[in-house]
Write a protein that binds this DNA or RNA. Structure first.
Length: 548
RNA sequence: GGCCUGUUGGUGAAGGGGUUUAACACGCCACCCUCUCAAGGUGGUAUUCACGGGUUCGAAACCCGUACAGGCUACCA
């Protein structure tokens, strides 16, 4: 038969059949409701928040059903593939504890799972076997359209306001006699393989998306390319079909930009008679750009890249929490009732997912992160700060290592109480908020005492140090001594009285404490002064006042 | 141009015909507390759910149009 000749000409030496692969990759032996999900990025060297969110959902879905979450490298576009990209993705997943159950890493030669290879370029023969089957059945054909011809078709369609694409009469080679095709291939003509679509654009089919519910699409009637001419690798659509079929994916989580490909995927699954996985088309993460709103972009928006959160030093917990609140808005309420539960215990419900795009609220992230850090122990804050510094600020890291106990004492200010302070939003902020505690950074400083003369302040501070300051005072005594000093110098101790008649006083207790505060830190805003002085210790306190 | 999806405050959103004077969280504002901050406390922050029409005793919710926004429309995923 001619078709056979054609198929063998294009794919000589394929030894297996679809049935062979089906036995090679049998149904997974999992519980009834187990979900098999995958994270399937293309290796471009980035991790985009628009990929992270579906990945998180994949992970939750698999974990809470005792299913499988696997990583698949979608490198069919060889021109866009970047060396080491998968390894980078592995590191991001590891950083967020979203480790896949099945994967394949080239650098370490590690592979796990019996449904591999998990790298698409290594699955070429598998795809070709499926394509060959289609060729044999006359459901696919080689297409010799050149780039120029296709451009011309597209232009013509655009001009005539017709649908763009290779379909109907534009599919010039779909009915080319097999003999001619064989001849041209033998001649060495470049070709792509297209699906011979059976669809009718005017007919609709129903499709159930787990987020959007039942939807209606027109059937696909475009003869989409399923194999590229350049390297014989499949297009995304075809690889999706083959891989998710053989790997027994039960749920495909992907961005809504894929929704318009549903007719294509529907037809592909139909052609083979395979059951489609369930689809969860999740809303896009958007960005407000001036007056308009658009899809968040790794090029324009730093927060689109996952490295942004790492560089700033957001705890992984905070990032996950913030994204989970977008994933399901009842997540926050759940979290309130389950403060210590792992996020995978939350029951994700695609139906409760919004079907419109969402702006990612960095203020919200900050709030979550701040609350989270405030609930950590001083040791945990220290470890977090140290880990971040080792990566991004060697100098601060060595200071932290040198002053471990001292640093933890700083982080412990007003921490061990029901409502702890919320000073730190992310780890990179800690240095900026504590630098003055370290003599190494407390150099060449300038002081600003506002309306008071420096000489006068200096005298007051000297009096304070010599006559009033005692390191072993408790906070109450400490403050009453400051008040004594106030009274002596005619600074008001009663703020209400002061506010009524400020002209009766030289100043108030606020001014005096601020003299001390600025003298010790140069700043007018710091955490509790008493604690600061306790941590600095007598030696530093006196020395800093002397050095004024 | 075509196809698909959506549209409830500054943000994420709840609510799917009458107990909604539109929940909750973030943000913002004000006041209180207070040695400065942070935290905390109290209150405020959509007279109204894109718009127009319809169904109904009654609509943010149901229907139809319109507008707007986004996505896709590659041998990219």
């Amino acid at each position: 038969m001619n078709r056979e000749e054609l198929a063998n000409l294009i794919f000589p030496g394929l030894t297996k059949t679809i049935a062979d692969y089906e036995t090679l990759y049998p149904e997974r032996d999992l519980g009834e409701n187990a979900r098999v999900t995958r994270f399937a990025p293309s290796p471009t060297g980035f991790m985009h928040i628009g990929h992270f969110m579906p990945c998180l959902i994949d992970y939750v879905l698999a974990r809470q059903s005792n299913g499988v979450f696997y990583l698949r490298n979608e490198d069919t576009d060889t021109s866009r593939s970047v060396e080491g990209a998968v390894e980078y993705i592995r590191s991001v997943l590891a950083a967020y504890d979203l480790n896949p159950d099945e994967y394949e890493y080239r650098d370490t030669n590690e592979t796990k799972g019996s449904y591999g290879p998990y790298i698409q370029s290594e699955r070429k023969e598998i795809y070709q076997t499926f394509i060959k089957h289609l060729l044999l059945e006359g459901k696919a054909y080689p297409c010799f359209l050149t780039k120029e011809e296709m451009d011309a078709i597209r232009e013509g369609q655009a001009r005539d306001k017709r649908r763009i694409g290779i379909y109907g009469r534009y599919a010039k080679y779909r009915d080319l006699p097999v003999e001619e095709a064989i001849e041209r291939i033998k001649k060495g003509d470049a070709f792509t393989i297209r699906l011979k679509s059976n669809g009718d654009f005017n007919r609709k089919f129903k499709f159930n998306d787990l987020v959007n519910g039942e939807m209606e699409f027109p059937e696909n009637d475009i003869d989409i390319p399923i194999m590229k001419s350049k390297d014989g690798l499949p297009t995304y659509h075809f690889a999706h079909l083959v891989d998710d079929y053989l790997m027994h994916t039960t749920h495909v989580v992907r961005g809504q930009e894929w929704m318009s490909s549903v007719p294509v995927h529907y037809e592909l699954f139909q052609v083979f008679g395979f059951k489609m996985p369930k689809y969860i088309h999740i809303p896009l993460i958007l960005k407000k750009d001036g007056e308009s709103i658009r899809k968040i972009s790794k090029r324009l928006d730093p927060e689109a890249k996952m490295t942004y959160y790492e560089e700033k030093g957001y705890p992984k917990f905070a990032v996950i929490e913030a994204i989970m609140t977008i994933v399901n808005s009842n997540y926050e309420a759940w979290r309130e009732g389950h403060p210590d539960a792992h996020f995978t215990e939350f029951e994700f419900s695609p139906k409760k997912m919004s079907s419109s795009g969402a702006l990612f609220d960095l203020d919200k992230l900050d709030n979550i992160s701040k609350n989270y850090i405030s609930r950590l122990t001083k040791e945990e804050v220290y470890e977090g700060a140290l880990a971040w510094s080792k990566k991004y600020d060697d100098e601060f890291a060595s200071i932290l290592e040198k002053y471990k106990e001292y640093s933890m004492a700083i982080y412990n200010i007003e921490r061990e109480q029901k409502k702890p302070r919320k000073d730190y939003t992310y780890y990179s902020e800690i240095k900026n908020k504590t630098w003055y505690m370290y003599d190494e950074y407390f150099k060449d400083v300038t002081y600003d005492f506002g309306i008071f003369k420096k000489e006068e302040v200096k005298e007051i501070l000297n009096t304070y140090i010599t006559e009033y300051y005692n390191e072993s005072d408790d906070q109450e005594t400490w403050f009453s001594k400051i008040k004594e000093l106030c009274t002596k110098l005619n600074f008001a101790t009663d703020m209400k009285a002061y506010k009524v008649n400020p002209e009766n006083y030289k100043g108030s207790v606020v001014d005096i404490t601020n003299f001390i505060r600025v003298g010790l830190t140069t700043l007018t805003t710091t955490p509790n002064l008493y604690d600061i002085m306790q941590i600095l210790g007598k030696e530093r306190v006196t020395k800093r006042i002397e050095n004024l």
